[in-house]
Design a protein around this nucleic acid. Structure first.
Lengths: 189, 189
DNA sequence: CCATTTGCCTATAGGCTTTAGGAAAATGCA
DNA sequence: TGCATTTTCCTAAAGCCTATAGGCAAATGG
């Protein structure tokens, strides 16, 4: 009985690949076991259950997203930073649709609090530091950016903007420009 | 053998209620059969399969959303219309979280083209008629609004904005104000 | 080198989807 | 009204998924 060399990390990485290839909702312990040519029950030595697997993929995705964002923001400020940050979201979602879906998987509050999601929130605030916003406006702006980026990427991945002019890239650029303008010319209630 | 009086419509409405109570991903033929005290196989006389059920719930949700939007927009224009339209989304998602999730269920292209989603898109353009945008800006703006509304509501329903100041209503109002300002002062690339 | 831990297995049970085929209720037409 | 047809719901069964219990063999370490 030769061992397959399973580890939690290897399973999670394979799960992330599976998510990108087949969709996050196709990430099952059965599919994963098949991929490693192993019986399903064997996975339970490394993962508590299938929720555990999905959560870990979500954490991996958040880490990757945060790492990319950190890279992209290094040495940038103002609109430059805003655009780079926005592109990190969109590019990640396009390159890794399954992982991106995973990143929005509902985590228990403590898990979420210990996740890279916190880093992402901090970086969003860092981007906004290039604009002249004081509380509570800054928090409103954080929520606006989160909504736009997430919403756009979600609609785009659902095919909402394909097969219609103008192409998605043009809208994306326009929207980032618009957000920059908006944040510079402090919104007036 | 007394008949239960199943119809496709009744099943779909019950499925929508189930979605709101337990979550859209808990909408299964099994759960539905249980709710009608009927065997699962019986449902296949009224629904092709479980994807068919979910699609029909999605169509129902889109209809309801479009009807609400039509009501809300009647007699309104400009920022007034924008705010009312925005609130329709948010209120519907808060009152019917399962249905709202359903409204974003991936439909086959032809089904989507025949759905109330088309009406919603038209109404979005109607709202923008209150602003002075010509193509392709108008399309960009349609996509921006869709992204913000959808993204915000999604993050809010995921609990993203709860338990932190300022409260979600304040951010929502701020964001609608900001979008109005943005659309009035034509964005400059 | 042997005891312990670890990794993977078989067996089993329960839930969801889907199809096939059958019987009773409702319907409709002569 | 009576009988044929259609419709509705059923039982049975197969396939795939999650999850737990208990066992044997491989790795590890004193």
């Amino acid at each position: 009985m030769v061992r397959a060399g399973l580890t939690t990390g290897r399973l999670v990485r394979a799960g992330a690949e599976l998510a990108d290839e087949a969709g996050f909702d196709q990430v099952t312990l059965s599919a994963l076991a098949r991929r490693f040519d192993v019986k399903v029950a064997s996975l339970y030595s490394h993962l508590r259950n299938s929720h555990d697997l999905r959560s870990r993929i979500a954490l991996l995705a958040l880490e990757e997203l945060a790492d990319r964002a950190a890279d992209a923001l290094a040495g940038r400020a103002g609109k430059d930073a805003l655009g780079a940050f926005a592109d990190v979201y969109r590019d990640y979602a396009r390159e890794h649709p399954g992982r991106y879906t995973a990143a929005r998987y509902r985590l228990d509050p403590e898990t979420a609090a210990a996740s890279a999601g916190v880093r992402i929130a901090q970086m969003t605030r860092a981007v906004l530091r290039g604009y002249d916003l004081s509380e509570p406006d800054q928090t409103h702006a954080v929520r606006l950016l989160g909504s736009v980026f997430h919403g756009y990427v979600d609609l785009e991945s659902a095919g909402g903007f394909s097969h219609s002019a103008p192409d998605s890239q043009a809208s994306w650029t326009w929207i980032v420009d618009a957000l920059d303008t908006l944040l510079r010319t402090r919104p007036t209630p």
